[in-house]
Design a protein around this nucleic acid. Structure first.
Lengths: 113, 113
DNA sequence: ATCATGCTTAGCCATATTGCTAAGTATTGC
DNA sequence: GCAATACTTAGCAATATGGCTAAGCATGAT
């Protein structure tokens, strides 16, 4: 498929890892240092840094360094395109009120064996 | 991070590819054959099949074969866990009404240079 | 000045992902 | 029967991902 729409791919990819989702959940309740985010994961710092940069490139978090400490904070608005896409999908399939698909698929499947 | 929660990873991963999202959008307006789904992508059939099986394993679509034709249909409910997770995230950060994070981050960043 | 802390960079390894081609198999139409 | 259609399977190549270790570089505390 054409390669526009790079945003959503970045966003969904960032969310596709449990470690990164856990980090977002942690950050949802307030900013944290890199080391603090690393601790519950059991992962080494370089690995954690990588997850954080994926989240940052997707726009889900901002980070800034003060002295030797880098603080990470969530960017709630970043979730909007995701939510919007999902809502649009729903809008399309709800435009067809018929629940015929599932019925048809079942008929086919029952015919199968 | 611990490996529970395998569902969401599957779901988000499935959505992280533009070809797969386009297929879902196409299917949102009604069931389709594999070849029909392949056509607008410009991809070869085996590649398309792989995308479809990713979507099917995630639970976003059902497929069934009638004769030599495989028909694919969307499974709208499959999107629910995704939507739920996003809503939960929002609930957490909205529980903190303060918009202090962004402010703090800005201060740090301005101090930076 | 020295040392611990906190991140950062570089680079390696294993596996997964996304595309392909080539060669099947199973149906349908003539 | 025979050919066209519609997948399907097997296997390859390039790149991406997710983990690590080792070593580097500031900053803060003593």
């Amino acid at each position: 498929m054409a390669k526009h729409d790079p945003d959503l791919s970045l966003l969904f990819h960032a969310l596709s890892d449990p470690t990164r989702r856990a980090m977002l959940t942690r950050l949802a309740s307030g900013p944290a240092r890199v080391t603090d985010l690393a601790e519950p994961t059991g992962l080494k710092l370089p690995t954690v840094m990588r997850h954080l940069s994926v989240l940052e490139q997707a726009g889900f978090i901002t980070t800034a360094k003060d002295g030797r400490i880098r603080t990470c904070a969530i960017v709630p608005e970043a979730m909007e395109p995701v939510r919007t896409w999902i809502d649009e999908q729903r809008a399309i399939w709800e435009a067809r009120l018929d629940r015929l698909d599932a019925f048809v698929m079942n008929v086919i499947k029952e015919t199968e064996e």
